[in-house]
Structure formats: structure tokens, C-alpha cells
Design a protein around this nucleic acid. Structure first.
Lengths: 207, 207
DNA sequence: CTCGAATTTGGAAGTTACTATCAAAATATA
DNA sequence: TATATTTTGATAGTAACTTCCAAATTCGAG
């Protein structure tokens, strides 16, 4: 962590990142303390020592403060680094494992857990989170997969797969947050991919 | 169509349904003509000859006018009518086929197509549509399936399956609307279920 | 170090979705 | 016809977002 790439940025950029983080931290703190709806953008701006108009320059909507993250480009880079002759879906599966291991630990884990719980509990956030994921991860996954598979981006099977995968990821996130993060997220993803790859053998059990 | 069940309702209820439909029709018409954002609730209210406050008594948000439909209870009823010893997932598959055949034809088809296209093009609607589906169809499917399977409602596999299914349905709807409804919706569902049940055999093709 | 260009910030005013309240109107019931 | 219940409309208010302009800050060149 010593000399991160951030330190080499020009002053202006560093300040912007700092402001952005300050807004996000104060916002999440206030949401946790008083609730999402009860916290106004004005209050967040005051806590972060900026003006409301500056708030909206950093985040287009109040929802984005909670819903936005920076995982997508990282995941894309990780996937592109993988061997070209590997099975594409298998590669995706292992990319997720690596990503989860690297990104979702320590303070990030608690942050993510808090965010998912908040998202889950506020309709406006649930809705926006899905759309952000759809615009971000969904598109990237389509591109990466169709590329590796040598298929068109509009290939129906690829779209179906990614659609199902995103739906599964949503489910996994909420299941994980429901259990207060007690279960291992990597293990939940593993079970998800197993079923997606091999099909769902849902059979009745003894009631 | 002659004497529908609606005619037997008391005057008050009939009027409510009529008002609700009037609001929805005028809203969709205005959205198509001038765009979603450019159309205000006030304008919709004026066109439907009601007050803005009445609008919000019928629809909690402007988004709901577009996003709400009445398919869920029908699908639930159709599923419950099916034989108890049938394979639950197979039953779901065939319920969807029947439902699509019965509900999504004629004027309903064009209406649905217009709605999906509108939803697809407006971020706020995309987001809200997902959340509505999640609150509605998702919960119902979890209940129906877990019941038939004799499993707990919190069963992880059931949740994964329904999550993936809902993701797939979203994908299918948008794919269908993208192609202006040229493809057969039932056929698209069939292919989706095939892959979900048997697993995704995504293999590279000759580029 | 200083000056001028570019960018970031703050402030003010406006739009619109949505809420709360309460009196008037329409409908049901007796 | 008279009374109770429900639905409606008008009014006033909140807060998220947008737009626009002037002030402050940072950057690059001489």
C-alpha cells in the first residue's frame, strides 16, 4: 500500500478524489445514523464542508453515493490478463474468486456489507443499484464473454447467460447480507457458478 | 368479451378501474408523444380530467403508471392449478408458455411492446421496473417453488434459481423489444429454460 | 514568482415529483 | 329521503435536482 498510484496524480486530481471520498464517507455515516430518507443532501454537504451544488457535481443523484463503486474496471483488467485458451466461463468463475479474495476483505468487506444492507432496505437504492449494475457489469461481461467466445455481442445465448449471472449475483449479495456476512462470499459464488454451468437439478425433498 | 366480471362490480369499483385505465392510457400516449421526462404529472392529470392529487392516489409514483401490470396474480393462479406430482420446474416452464399464449396476444402484445421499449429507454423506469419485478414476481416464484419442492423459503438453491430466472426474463424482454417484437416470445422463453435447466454449454465458435 | 488560462466551487433561483391536510362532492345504505 | 362512507380536489409545503453566473483555486509559461 505504500506508494499507491494516487500519490503521483496532480494536486487537482488528488483533491477531487479526496473530496469524493469525504462526501461518500459522511453520507454513509449519516445514512446509518439517521436513515437514508431522513438525511438531506444539504446535511451531507454541510458535513463534508462543501456546497450542495458541489455534491451534485460529484454524484449525479443522491442514490449514487451509495450505489457507485470502482470494481468493474478492476474485474475487466483481471479477466483480460487471463490465458486466451482457457475456457471462457471457467475463467470468469476464477476471476470472481480472485477478485473476491483481493478486493472484498478487511475494511472493504465491512463497507460493502453496510452498503448492501442499506441498498436492500431502501427501494430507491435497490432500483438504482440494479440499473447501475446493468449499465456497468452487464455490458462489460457481455463484451468480455462474446469476445472470448468469438461470438457476436448480440448473441442470444451470451445475453441469456450474462442476464442469469447478474440475477444470481444480486441474489447472492442479498443472501450474504441477510446473514450478516456470516457465510463466505467466495463459497456462495462457487455454488452459484456450479448450478449455472451444470444446470439446476431442483428436486423435491422430504418435507 | 360480452359480460366480463367487471360489469358485476359496484359502481364505485367500476369507476375506479375506469379512472385507473384512463390515467394509464393518457400517460402512455403523452409519454410516446413528448417523452417521459418532458411530460409532467400535471399534464397527465389534466388529460385524464382528474387532479394531480388523485393521480397519486391511483399510482404512488409517476413510474408506476408505466411499470405496473396485473400479470402476477394470474400466473400464480395458473401455477397452483397444475398437478401436484409434476416436476416443479417443468411446471413453471409450461405455465409460462400458457401464460404467454393467453395473455400476451392481440392489443396486449402491442401495449406490452411499447411499455418495454419505453422502460428500456428511461433509466428511472428501468430501475423501477426491476424493483417491482423483484418485489412481485420474485417473491411469488420463491413461494410457489419452495412450496412444491418441500423446501424452506430461504433455501439457497431455490433463491439462486429464481434470481437467475428473473435475470433471464429481463434479458429476454429487452432482447424481444430490441427486435421490435419480431421473434416469438414463447420460443425465447423456451430457449431460456433449456439453458437454465441443462446448464450453459458456452463454447467458442469459429470467429 | 507572477500573470493569465482553465477548472473547480458556491450561491441563488427555478422546476417538479411527492406528501399532508381538510373541506366538498359523490356514492352507498337504511 | 336521510345519513354514513368513500372519493376527490385545492392548497401549501418539502426536497431533489437543474441551470447559470461570479468568485476562488490551481495550473503552465515566461
Amino acid at each position: 500500500m505504500s506508494t499507491s498510484s494516487l500519490d503521483r496524480l496532480p494536486l487537482r486530481e488528488r483533491k477531487k478524489l479526496k473530496t469524493r471520498r469525504a462526501i461518500q464517507e459522511h453520507a454513509l455515516r449519516l445514512f446509518a445514523a439517521h436513515g437514508y430518507d431522513a438525511t438531506t443532501v444539504e446535511q451531507i454537504a454541510e458535513a463534508a464542508e462543501i456546497s450542495p451544488s458541489t455534491f451534485f457535481r460529484y454524484f449525479p443523484t443522491k442514490e449514487d453515493v451509495v450505489v457507485t463503486d470502482e470494481y468493474d474496471p478492476l474485474m475487466e483488467a483481471m479477466y483480460r490478463e487471463r490465458a486466451a485458451d482457457e475456457d471462457p466461463v471457467e475463467g470468469l468463475r476464477e476471476m470472481f474468486q480472485t477478485a473476491l479474495g483481493e478486493m472484498i476483505v478487511g475494511p472493504d468487506r465491512d463497507r460493502l456489507l453496510a452498503r448492501v444492507k442499506l441498498i436492500q432496505s431502501v427501494p430507491a437504492l435497490r432500483a438504482r443499484a440494479w440499473d447501475i449494475q446493468q449499465q456497468g457489469s452487464h455490458g462489460i461481461l457481455i463484451e468480455l464473454l462474446s469476445e472470448r467466445l468469438g461470438r457476436d455481442r448480440n448473441d442470444f445465448q451470451v445475453q441469456l447467460f450474462v442476464g442469469a449471472l447478474i440475477g444470481m449475483i444480486s441474489t447472492i449479495s442479498y443472501y450474504w447480507a441477510d446473514g450478516d456476512g456470516a457465510e463466505d462470499l467466495g463459497e456462495l459464488f462457487r455454488r452459484g457458478f456450479d448450478l449455472l454451468q451444470a444446470g439446476f437439478p431442483l428436486a423435491a425433498q422430504e418435507g
